[in-house]
Design a binder for these strands. Structure first.
Length: 556
RNA sequence: GUCCCAGUAGCUCAGCAGGAUAGAGCAACAGCCUUCUAAGCUGUGGGUCGCAGGUUCGAAUCCUGCCUGGGACGCCA
């Protein structure tokens, strides 16, 4: 627990004691004491709405209750400077700023560990994300999902959860057959033959590249062979090549998976028959029209779903149930699926499956990533699956860069659609928030460099009580919030809070920088205190950027 | 027709585990570089929080209905 949280906790205890002391409510009646940070500084450091909440219980006017509470408050214990009652009955607490003095030593001590907490209490969470079919490149939408999933994992990890990142490889369905046919067509085209792409073929550049690689490696050897044998070979070759591409792109994007789970393994390990058996035992299965059905309507879905088609093959759903059973059987406290918006309709049936498998529905959580609209030159770019014309993750990394791409994706809530403006993301101007934050970091680095050159002792003793200027106090308070912000982002699964936080911190830094001079030969004490502050800000910015997966440059 | 997401400043979006005068960036306007990086700072203007009800001491936030935009509703994956 850091200083700020400790202060808050003590204050809560004192308020509770005061309420009980004033006999406004019994222990059982007392609602949880909540403190929030007022937006307006004139409302103090913390505000409590407890008086309003007690109005009904105590049968008194909120302001009267607030008076009673304040009268019973032992102000010495919680390092309170001043208490005010305001508005309809808010109690505003102004804290003695001495508690802020702890923040800098805490940060300088913790370094890259600053921000981490045990808020998650070691609970295990598995996050499955990206999981793109291995049939081509990752496009814009996948990139958003990748960034979101990865940063969510970073945040969960920092907040004390045990996190596992997993990619589910759909290497067993029809799409792999189509992949084989697509590679074949491209291969024969590369050899100059006039063949058409299959109906549900994959038109992306990635397949053309794979076909070209085949030509380079085998020449026209495969054109001569038996068609069936050829397609079988191309299937496996295409699968391997696609996966390698995907993994390479993701690694370059800074996304690393702990586990790549193959759908095929579910067949080999009899996991699918096991899962079906479990459903059958629970009486969730029936036969109709020559197919096997899962009665998901019993569990909140709006229609029943086929598991085994008339032709005897499984639907996509069936191995996916087995996959989820496998995940749950592995004993995670929670599994999170990050899905594209086009899959949201799939949630009720999966939730039904979770329950039919004997798990509580809440074990699985689905985060839906809304669509990304691409803008270039002020125009919305139309993507076409058929022609394969789409902006890929690779394009983004090459044209925009990893930092700006990741940052941009994490600025918005996952359930808002996102306009991705290529020109803006590429621009190295003040319109682009990622540079604004990185600039703050680089600025501090330059200052510290200068301090060294000018002979200041940047490792020496400092007296934090010298930091009393308004902008210094603002910075200190913001720095103190960092661990709590991470814990909140983890609990609410809202990684975009991190970009918001670090942007605000950068704003305070820039503002401070313009108002105050750090290095002052005539004021050594103030200088050492400010150097320590700058170091703490730098560490916090770097840690925040680290969570987002964005670099913290020392020079720009 | 059913379901999901969104609707907040001119634009893009935060805020939505109910709280005080609704925020940020961009755009607009006016200032700040002989001084640690001007990719920066300071200030001004800008709002029926889609609409209508309801719950509440209190609603952008919760509930219901409607409107608009996007998406999903396969024995495809």
């Amino acid at each position: 627990m850091n200083v700020l949280e400790q202060t808050e906790e003590t204050l809560k205890q004192e308020i509770k004691a005061a309420v009980l002391g004033a006999k406004l409510a019994t222990e059982e009646e007392l609602p949880a004491v909540a403190l929030d940070k007022p937006k307006d500084k004139s409302h103090g450091d913390f505000a409590s709405n407890i008086a309003m909440q007690l109005a009904r219980i105590a049968k008194k006017a909120p302001r009267q209750i607030a008076d009673d509470i304040v009268a019973n408050l032992d102000q010495s214990k919680a390092s309170i400077e001043k208490v005010e009652i305001a508005g309809p009955g808010f109690i505003n607490f102004f804290m003695k700023n001495d508690f802020l003095g702890e923040i800098i030593p805490t940060i300088l001590e913790a370094k890259e560990e600053y921000g981490k907490t045990d808020a998650g209490k070691g609970k295990s969470v598995q996050v499955e994300f990206v999981s793109v079919n291995p049939t081509g490149d990752l496009h814009l939408g996948h990139a958003r999902g990748a960034a979101f999933g990865d940063v969510l994992c970073n945040v969960l990890d920092a907040a004390g959860y045990k996190v596992e990142r997993e990619y589910y490889i759909n290497d067993a369905g029809n799409q792999i057959g189509n992949l084989g046919l697509s590679v074949e067509a491209r291969y024969l085209q590369a050899l100059g033959q006039d063949v058409e792409m299959p109906e549900d073929g994959y038109h992306g550049q990635a397949i053309i590249d794979i076909a070209n690689a085949l030509v380079t490696e085998y020449g026209d050897e495969w054109a001569e062979k038996d068609k069936e044998e050829r397609i079988e070979f191309f299937k496996e070759y295409g699968l391997k090549a696609s996966l390698a591409n995907i993994e390479k792109d993701l690694e370059e994007f800074g996304v690393h998976f702990d586990n790549w789970f193959s759908e095929r393994s579910l067949y080999h390990d009899d996991k699918i028959t096991d899962a079906l058996e479990t459903l059958k035992k629970g009486n969730h299965i029936y036969e109709q029209d020559g197919a096997t059905w899962f009665k998901t309507t019993d569990l909140g879905d709006d229609k029943d779903r086929v598991l085994i088609k008339k032709d005897g093959s499984y639907t996509y759903f069936t191995p996916d149930i087995a996959y989820h059973k496998d995940k749950l059987d592995r004993g995670f406290d929670k599994i999170i699926n990050v899905w594209g918006a086009d899959h949201h309709g799939y949630i009720p049936r999966m939730r039904a499956a979770i329950q039919a498998l004997g798990y509580p529905a809440e074990k699985m959580e689905v985060k839906i990533i809304q669509m990304v609209n691409l803008f270039e030159g002020g125009e919305k770019v139309r993507m076409s699956k058929r022609t394969g014309k789409a902006v890929s993750l690779r394009d983004l990394m090459e044209e925009v860069g990893v930092d700006a791409t990741r940052y941009t994706f994490i600025t918005r809530s996952n359930d808002s659609q996102l306009d991705f403006d290529m020109d803006l993301a590429k621009s190295q101007t003040n319109e682009n928030p990622v540079y604004y934050v990185q600039y703050a970091h680089a600025r501090i680095c330059t200052m510290l460099e200068q301090a060294k050159n000018k002979g200041f002792d940047i490792e020496g003793a400092y007296d934090v009580s010298r930091l009393t200027a308004e902008k210094e106090v603002d910075l200190l308070k913001k720095l103190g919030e960092f661990p709590k912000m991470i814990a909140e982002a983890a609990e609410m699964e809202t990684p975009h809070k991190v970009t918001q936080y670090v942007y605000n911190l950068a704003t305070l830094l820039h503002s401070f920088y313009n108002a105050e001079k750090v290095l002052d030969q005539d004021n050594q004490e103030q200088t050492s205190a400010r150097i320590a502050l700058m170091k703490a800000v730098r560490i916090t910015i770097e840690n925040a950027l680290q969570l987002i997966g964005v670099s913290a440059p020392e020079k720009m």
